[in-house]
Simulated scan of single mutants.
Amino acid sequence: MPVLPGAEPFRHEGGEVGVLLCHGFTGSPQSLRPWAEYLAKNGLTVSLPLLPGHGTRWQDMALTGWQDWYAEVDRELHDLRARCSQVFVFGLSMGGALTLRLAAKHGDAIAGLVLVNPANKVHGLAAHALPVARHFVRTTKGIASDIAMDGGEEIGYDRVPLHAAHSLRRFFRLVDAELPQVTQPIVLLHSPQDHVVPPADSARILSRVSSTDVTEILLEQSYHVATLDYDADRIFEESLAFLGRLAPSVDDSKEGTATGG
């Protein structure tokens, strides 16, 4: 099945500092591509993979689960580590949960994390019915494009496969148990007005990680997909400042060649 136009993965060979970006559930690299391109223009080596089952049609996603999504970012991390002296991981929504599990599992191999509206739980009463309901109902309504900016649009599915949602719920529970193993420096940016992931998820993550170098930033003007919203520039600038603080070799003037697909 061909990838939706705009949902292609993105990679850029830059300097010795690498950044892995992880997109969200039912979304695609498009939601993080402006961020990835900003980092690439500032000399970073960047990897923004397309998670299995995403960026095509929801029927493909119904055949995948958290093990597939995590395996993809884990492979990309290994590739970046082979080419870079320092590697950071950034994530949006479920991508934040993938980022946190990578941090818990790989320890000092990851230099720092930037999380945007990270998800920690599948919310709502329906979540408890997922183990049974997924055998009788294939999908529920989509969650894409929660953006305050007029005209803002996220490339994502208009339906959520319940098999995948059930797998996501199990993954969140696994990651929550592993949060005390996370020790890396963290910048966590979250939107008070988020119609997909409530602020309670960010609060729980911050209360359970073992990191001592933690910065929390509120994105007052944006909804869930803040990387495509009014606060996008702030996210990009704060993340670059974070990189510059922890990786002094980051050279803002350095540019290379970026590729999509």
Rank of each mutant, 00 (worst) to 15 (best):
P2K: 12
P2L: 12
P9Q: 12
H12I: 00
E13R: 15
V17C: 14
G18L: 15
L20A: 13
F25K: 05
L39Y: 09
A40P: 00
V46Q: 08
S47G: 05
P49L: 07
L50W: 15
W58Q: 04
W58L: 01
D60L: 09
M61L: 11
L63D: 02
W66M: 02
E72S: 15
V73P: 05
E76R: 15
R81Q: 12
R83C: 05
V89C: 15
L98W: 07
L102G: 09
L102A: 10
G107D: 01
G107Q: 13
G107L: 08
P118T: 01
P118S: 06
K121A: 14
G124T: 03
F136M: 06
T140G: 12
I147E: 04
D150R: 14
E154N: 05
H163K: 09
A165Q: 02
H166I: 03
F172K: 04
R173T: 05
L174N: 09
E178Y: 10
P180G: 09
P180A: 10
V182N: 11
H190S: 08
H195L: 07
V197I: 13
D201Y: 11
A203K: 12
R208C: 07
V209M: 10
T215D: 03
E216D: 00
L219C: 04
H224I: 01
A226V: 04
S239K: 08
V250G: 12
D251P: 02
E255T: 11
G260D: 04
